[in-house]
Amino acid sequence: MSLLSELTRAAVAQRAPDAVAVVPVGACEQHGPHLPLGTDLMVAEHVATAAAARLAGELDVVVAPSVAVGYSPHHVPIGATLTAGVVTLLTQLQEVCAGLTAAGFRRVFLLNGHGGNAELVVVAAREAGQTLRVRVGAGSYWVMAWDELIAAGAQDRGRLPGHAGAFETSLALALRPDLVVDPPHRPGTRFERNPAGYFGRYHVEQPDAMASGDGFSDDPSAGTAEDGRRYLDAVVTAVAAGLREFAGQV
């Protein structure tokens, strides 16, 4: 595993044709009163590097610089949120893929960590793959690891993935407990288990859903570092398997 930004031009030219370039895609947005704005990016970057390390010796994975600002207009009314427009984000993702292809990579994977980006990374991958004539994949880590997360109990305490609730609070406590500030307790929070994946059978947009309230989907105080470590291990295992399959080694 290597970070693209730490490689020389010669090293990239040598490794790129046989490697997979992974691009973490995140967001910079409010995550309740208790989690850092970069939670989604922090998790995506960790999963990318940890999955790459797990594949060392069988698949060369190079982690590219992250796309840090995602599609987050639904969080702007609450505050402390940066957002890219649809066209801007699609263009940036496609141009990152084009740059990696020009550097010699023939396989590029967009690893998403933010719900608002979920459809857009797939569209960007489809467009880039068709235009550049290389293999481009995309996936949101919790979708790629859905079955593993269910087995790890990730729907037992709150929504999966939810927003700044028990699940994401657990991940943050496992990764950067120093950045978590007194997770609030919201007793009696109701949440529905989602048996059909992230979007279910169809998607309904509710423009005012995040415009009021406290900016989290379920009880953050239900999250624990122990749970977070278990969830992260499940995610890394699933994403590593997904990258192996994407690379054509299964």
Results as ranks from 00 to 15, higher is better:
residue 233 D to T: 14
residue 95 E to C: 04
residue 41 L to R: 09
residue 218 D to V: 11
residue 141 Y to M: 08
residue 223 G to A: 12
residue 40 D to C: 08
residue 103 A to K: 03
residue 20 V to L: 14
residue 212 S to G: 15
residue 99 G to W: 00
residue 245 E to K: 01
residue 171 L to T: 13
residue 8 T to L: 11
residue 130 Q to S: 03
residue 154 A to F: 12
residue 117 N to W: 11
residue 152 A to L: 09
residue 177 P to I: 14
residue 166 A to M: 13
residue 13 A to I: 07
residue 118 A to C: 05
residue 88 T to Q: 11
residue 52 A to K: 02
residue 184 P to L: 11
residue 128 A to C: 03
residue 115 G to R: 00
residue 2 S to T: 14
residue 27 A to M: 10
residue 69 V to L: 10
residue 4 L to Y: 03
residue 36 P to K: 09
residue 156 D to Y: 11
residue 178 D to Y: 14
residue 100 L to S: 10
residue 28 C to P: 12
residue 43 V to H: 03
residue 88 T to W: 06
residue 121 V to N: 11
residue 197 G to I: 06
residue 95 E to R: 13
residue 38 G to C: 10
residue 60 D to E: 14
residue 121 V to M: 09
residue 215 G to C: 15
residue 176 R to Q: 11
residue 235 V to C: 03
residue 199 F to C: 07
residue 129 G to Y: 00
residue 206 Q to C: 15
residue 231 Y to I: 13
residue 227 D to P: 05
residue 144 M to T: 03
residue 65 P to F: 04
residue 206 Q to Y: 14
residue 136 V to E: 05
residue 88 T to N: 08
residue 40 D to G: 14
residue 54 R to S: 05
residue 196 A to N: 13
residue 96 V to S: 00
residue 163 H to P: 09
residue 99 G to D: 01
residue 245 E to I: 07
residue 106 R to E: 00
residue 135 R to V: 13
residue 82 L to T: 01
residue 150 I to F: 07
residue 216 F to G: 07
residue 231 Y to S: 15
residue 50 A to N: 12
residue 197 G to L: 07
residue 137 G to I: 12
residue 143 V to T: 11
residue 18 D to W: 00
residue 228 G to M: 12
residue 115 G to N: 05
residue 135 R to Q: 15
residue 115 G to Y: 06
residue 148 E to N: 05
residue 117 N to H: 05
residue 165 G to A: 09
residue 59 L to A: 10
residue 234 A to M: 10
residue 63 V to Q: 02
residue 41 L to T: 12
residue 110 L to T: 04
residue 130 Q to H: 03
residue 30 Q to M: 07
residue 217 S to D: 13
residue 155 Q to R: 00
residue 230 R to P: 13
residue 55 L to I: 04
residue 196 A to Y: 14
residue 116 G to N: 11
residue 187 P to Q: 13
residue 163 H to K: 01
residue 137 G to M: 05
residue 249 Q to I: 10
residue 108 V to A: 00
residue 229 R to H: 14
residue 175 L to Y: 06
residue 111 L to W: 06
residue 58 E to I: 03
residue 60 D to T: 06
residue 10 A to I: 02
residue 189 T to W: 10
residue 2 S to E: 09
residue 138 A to T: 08
residue 42 M to E: 15
residue 25 V to L: 02
residue 43 V to C: 11
residue 131 T to A: 15
residue 189 T to Y: 08
residue 23 V to Y: 05
residue 146 W to L: 04
residue 240 A to Q: 02
residue 7 L to A: 02
residue 68 A to G: 07
residue 238 A to Q: 06
residue 102 A to W: 02
residue 157 R to I: 02
residue 161 P to K: 08
residue 90 L to N: 02
residue 190 R to T: 13
residue 35 L to D: 08
